[in-house]
Design a protein around this nucleic acid. Structure first.
Lengths: 221, 221
DNA sequence: ACGATGGTTCGGCTATCATCGAACCATGAG
DNA sequence: CTCATGGTTCGATGATAGCCGAACCATCGT
């Protein structure tokens, strides 16, 4: 009869036990893959795929493709707020989810295509965002160029390409963004050139030297 | 698989279009009857009854019986918070609902069993709560007794009875509580005795005299 | 006591939707 | 190129739940 905001539509998306368990698993802001969410919720991947499609369609989840993986995360803080409002009704708290790769070395630093990933990569990206090296739409600021120049990454040194100079890439182990794009590649190249780190053979592990790690952390501040 | 808080259960209660429309109608804190909610949501009373039972069972709504009526209201502020969190997803705002009796005189003041209802009754109750005449569990404070004594309602004047001295009664037109119980009755009796108001014949209307209304408002502060 | 009204219960119909098997598409590794 | 893996689409099945007609119970007013 009366028409108000269509709160039933969103509520219905949360009302399914499988979907709600997915949302709870994503409450810490990480991004998980479809199969992870499937096994986590105890359904087959087809079923999970259907649920995830609904959630993305309803703009409750955001999705980011990464090679043959698709990482799903909450669409925003308002989604988390909604889940919290629902959790008020049941007093017991949620239990966290274990995740991530096994090898600590991979967790710490590795190559993602051609740029730095893992804890170190995420630290770089976080720092760059928070210290104003980058704008919200991932442009490089004055401050940013001066910082990147400090390790030899200058505008002139970047190859001419239609590839975006700076891109955020979703991190596999940290489930957060790290720095990708031309600058991401150039930065990783410089880490090798400066001998702050080297790539272990037959592996994606990026091994920092003690001195290299100290310098790196010093550089990002 | 994993067990967290059962947010799906509450979400499912909101997920139905009929139930969500009921909840939206109750967002202003008023209490509505089952039939009102039924016609408001465009379903028959049987259907509405089923929905309301579910909502009450899930502790999303609270119900208060009043003769042959049952007044439903949100179970608490946390329910309103939940609805708000859901409304964030759709930008357009809710539209209010019209309600209430037709006769303005009845709206203003009338007898509810043996005590005062309507705008004047609600005003008394609100004022008594906010000025500390009553405790949270509806006991009468020192201040309260001194105020009630001012119009001749004293502890000694109340009849010995197992009926609670002070009770909150849900108001029909205002959809808020007014003052009931022994004190409610005694107060109304004094209004008539003091000639601040009189009861219209063959009606529930309580007609205040201009002087009486002035004195009444002065009394409650 | 009786009718009118508010509200609930019951039973059957129907529609929606979650689920999974199977087949299919896309990407990455060797 | 070929295989393995992540993910989606399709179709059939089964369960859930909303809906209303009809009957029933309770309360109010006269």
């Amino acid at each position: 009869m009366r028409e108000g905001p269509d709160i039933a539509r969103i509520a219905a998306l949360v009302a399914d036990p499988v979907r709600s368990s997915m949302l709870l698993a994503l409450m810490d802001g990480r991004a998980l893959t479809a199969t992870e969410l499937a096994s986590l919720s105890g359904v087959t991947k087809q079923t999970a795929s259907g649920h995830l499609a609904k959630l993305v369609d309803g703009e409750v989840l955001a999705v980011e493709a990464q090679g043959r993986h698709r990482y799903f995360r909450l669409a925003g803080a308002h989604v988390a707020a909604l889940i919290e409002a629902l959790m008020v009704f049941s007093s017991d708290a949620a239990s966290p989810v274990r995740t991530g790769p096994k090898e600590p070395a991979l967790r710490k630093a590795r190559v993602c295509y051609d740029h730095l990933a893992g804890e170190m990569g995420v630290a770089l990206y976080d720092r760059a965002r928070e210290a104003g090296w980058l704008t919200d739409d991932l442009g490089v600021t004055e401050v940013g160029w001066s910082r990147f120049s400090a390790i030899g990454v200058t505008p002139d040194s970047l190859p001419r390409s239609n590839r975006p100079p700076c891109r955020a890439c979703l991190d596999w182990s940290q489930r957060r963004h790290h720095l990708a794009g031309l600058i991401g590649k150039a930065t990783l190249d410089r880490l090798f050139a400066l001998s702050w780190a080297r790539r272990l053979p037959a592996s994606r592990v990026v091994a920092f030297t003690p001195e290299g790690e100290r310098r790196f952390r010093e550089w990002i501040g």
